[in-house]
Each structure stands twice: as C-alpha cells, then as structure tokens.
Design a protein around this nucleic acid. Structure first.
Lengths: 152, 152
DNA sequence: CGAATTCTTGGAATATTATCCCGCAATTTC
DNA sequence: GAAATTGCGGGATAATATTCCAAGAATTCG
C-alpha cells in the first residue's frame, strides 16, 4: 500500500486530533518537524487524508436523535436508483446513504431533534422519495460510541 | 441555543474544512479576523465544536467495505448491556454502536477489507461478544454518500 | 564489492498564521 | 441619561507552517 509504520502513526494521530501542530505531531512519531511535514503533505497529496473537518456536538446542535431508515425500492432499474439517490442527497438531515446487498434496498442514517422532528423530516422529505416500496425506521435510544477513525 | 447566524456560518464552514485559516474563515463569514477568532474559541470552549479530525479515505486505507450488524441480546439486564458494550468498544473495526429502541438490540457499523476479512472479524470478535441471542449482518454494496456535517 | 543514484533526513531561514491586547462603538441596565 | 456590558476592528507579538539546502542512509547497478 506504500505506508510504513511512521505513516500509520501519523494517520492515527491526525485521525484523533486533526489540528495538532506539526511540531507536536513530529514529536509523537519521532521525526524532525520538516520530515514529518513532508510526510503529511505526501499523505494528503496521495489521497490517504481526504479532509480535515470539525466535528460538532450533536446534542449541543439540537439533533441528539439518530434514526436508521431501511428502504426497499419498487424496482432496481438504474433510473430508479439514480432518481432515488439524487433525491436523497438533497435532504440535509440524512448523513449517510448506503446501497445494501440483497434485495435492492438502502440504509439511511438520519439525525433529528426528536421524534416529532423526525415526523417532519419523514413527511417533508422521506415520504416523497421516488420509487419507494417500503420504509422502516429504527430509532437509536443512545449512541454507545461513534468514531470517524479507521483502523490503521 | 445561543447561536446567531454568524456562529452557524462559522460552524458550517469548519464542518467542511476544519483547517481553514482564521483569515479565510473570517472572510467567509464577513467578520474581522480577531472577532472571528474569538467566536471560534467560544464555540470550542462551549462544546459546540467537539473535535478537529482528519478523515481518511477508506478505500485507500484498505477498508472499503461497510457492514451493518444488528444484534439482539438474550436479556436486557443492565449488567448484560454493560458487558456487551464494554466488549464491543474494544473492537477496532467497529466504528459505531447504537442502542436501538424496541427489543433490546444494537446496531453496529463495521468496516472491513472485504467479505473474507469480515469473516475474520466475525470469528475473532463478534462471535465472542457476551449475551448475544441473534446477529444479522448486512453488507453495503456501495456508499452513496457520507458526511460528518450536521445540519446547521 | 564499490560507485552512483535515489530517497529521506535534520536544521535553518522565511512566510504565514494564531493569539492577545487595546481602544472604540453599540446596546443594555438601572 | 449615565454606567456597565458586550462585541467589534486594528495592530503587535508569539507560534506555526513551509521551503531550501546539505548530509546521511539505503538501494541499484556495473
């Protein structure tokens, strides 16, 4: 893959703390600042690091509720899927959309203020999605944990 | 909630590009650099911004496969749940764990290299989780989209 | 085995950026 | 209406990123 142990340590560190200063990072991976900086630039240029983002607190932002929505479409013609995906991608409350194996269905991850707010999202967006045969929503009572850090 | 329109613009921008320089950010939100910086510090201190992280490319990192695992436990005694959650949180390939409403079950989001690798994860970790009555794994064929950005 | 090439390193110089301090203006409070 | 509070912009300074260069290790090739 082209990653040595030092690269992996860099990636592991930046996955946890993306705004770590280069000096601190170079310290953690036992490299001089300039060598470390070069590696980070390479990892960015080669696409291992896709982005740096701020993660917000869902509770503080007023969307503490996560809902998983399983959707079965009426058919699997490509146009049906395309139209569905295009429509889904415009819903701001949907954070993830996965095409699943098996019967042609999707899983969406949706965030909402609460149950009522999800009802609004359902009415306003989900119920209007094209090509839907069946929809089943499952509420998360509590997020036990959640990370964006891939195993390195 | 204590957030005005400028705060929201700051949060929206940092959710997309967490390493934006303060000068660039202040420009986007029509604020002087110093005022903008002060707001960011407040948003961090008040916990609206939880973290800055680097997002890695799952494909490049060799884990292009996402699997959702639904788990039903044998009982809902608190000790059973605690033991289960504690054990799950030690599996590096599990990125998310949610306690779901309804029958006491969980949804896990797992990443793997491929189907075989998921078999390894299943054998090595999932099959050994305590208190499990039933487990059903669903493979994602394709991630249509995925974002960490909450609606602001 | 040795020379040449390539690759990666560390340190120093420079440019960029973050951070803090100050005075000012607007709004609120009494 | 005066005092206090809040948020602003500009400027000084400290921290940080970024680039350049020469030297050392690893690899290739004759």
């Amino acid at each position: 893959m082209g990653l040595d142990a030092t690269d992996r340590r860099i990636l592991a560190a930046l996955q946890k703390k993306g705004r770590m200063s280069n000096a601190e990072l170079s310290d953690q991976v036992n490299l001089s600042p300039s060598a470390c900086h070069r590696r980070v630039q390479r990892l960015e240029a080669d696409g291992y690091i896709r982005d740096y983002v701020a993660l917000l607190d869902a509770r503080k932002m007023g969307v503490p509720t996560t809902v998983f929505v399983e959707i079965t479409l009426q058919g699997q013609a490509e146009e049906v899927l395309d139209a569905f995906e295009k429509a889904v991608s415009r819903i701001p409350d949907v954070l993830e959309c996965h095409l699943m194996a098996g019967t042609a269905d999707y899983i969406l991850k949706v965030v909402a203020e609460n149950t009522e707010d999800f009802a609004r999202i359902h009415k306003q967006y989900l119920s209007r999605l094209p090509g839907v045969a069946q929809m089943q929503s499952s509420f998360a009572l509590r997020t036990v944990f959640k990370t964006t850090a891939l195993p390195v």
